[in-house]
Design a protein around this nucleic acid. Structure first.
Lengths: 150, 150
DNA sequence: ACTTGATCTAGACCTCGCTCTAGATCCTAG
DNA sequence: CTAGGATCTAGAGCGAGGTCTAGATCAAGT
């Protein structure tokens, strides 16, 4: 293999924004908040140069955020990594706890989905047979509204 | 069957809070925001008396909110219902659009889950064989950090 | 009558997670 | 050299979705 095939030069903030989906504002914000593992390298002129490792970490962050991990947890994780070896158990615990939350979230969403699907079905059927029965009817308040609620 | 088995008396705000999981504050807030279908009935003394239909609607709201529908959409839906028959297509559209969003969300979460699961696996293995290889190592920055990233 | 607790209104306040602004600086192309 | 765009810092601002407070009122038990 030739020299340094996997070059992966340091990237500018704009490039990192592109590949992570975060805005440049958000990237600076994350840094200020201590969500990054190391201080980002700078050029002579003061511009940020993100190492591949920074980008990898940010990509994980994106996934964790997307799945609802609060910034404080992300920060904690970054702190632990910064502290170095010895706290892997706590890191694992953070991830594991979050994983459970994500699973619960998926469950909850599945349930929501089925409720919504049912409701969509009610409306679809209603429309299919030409504006017939009473869906939610504000004039019928106080008694059963129909709509198939059990 | 005896008379009115399915009595379902009107409920106080506290009781509704209990059965919907919303706080009494949130219930009043929702009402102010026009998220309810009708104005809630009041006792002579001015206390709210929620009809069963109000509770049904709130339970749907909870599911929609839980799955990320913004309050503005919920409000729109409530408006449509308030307007009465004739706009069922738009109601269906709102629900249907949301349903798609929920499905996309579930997909995204599944993906997050697998990323996290992989990460958890890396840590678990690491811990199992006694603090060996380099996970995220802040001292190793600038070159490959290991941790199995591909 | 008195106490206790739930509820009332209006409106201020809060957290989260960014986003945007201002004004300066860096850098690349022409 | 100059113009343009990307980036910099510090800090203000924002939208969503409630939450909380104050001060008053209602309702039930003793």
């Amino acid at each position: 293999m030739a020299t340094t095939e996997i070059r992966a030069e340091p990237l500018s903030i704009g490039e990192v924004a592109e590949r992570t989906g975060l805005s440049v504002h958000a990237l600076r914000f994350y840094e200020r908040e201590g969500l990054l593992i190391g201080p980002v390298q700078r050029t002579a002129g003061g511009r940020r140069r993100y190492a591949p490792a920074d980008v990898d970490w940010l990509l994980i962050c994106v996934k964790l955020r997307e799945s609802g991990m609060p910034l404080t947890d992300l920060k904690r994780f970054a702190e632990l990594v910064r502290q170095g070896a010895g706290n892997e158990a706590e890191r694992l615990h953070l991830l594991d706890t979050h994983q459970r939350r994500v699973e619960a979230q998926i469950q909850a969403l599945e349930e929501c989905r089925s409720v919504i699907a049912w409701k969509v079905g009610v409306y679809a059927e209603h429309l299919a047979r030409g504006e017939a029965a009473g869906l939610w009817d504000p004039t019928a308040r106080g008694e059963a509204e129909g709509e198939g609620a059990e």
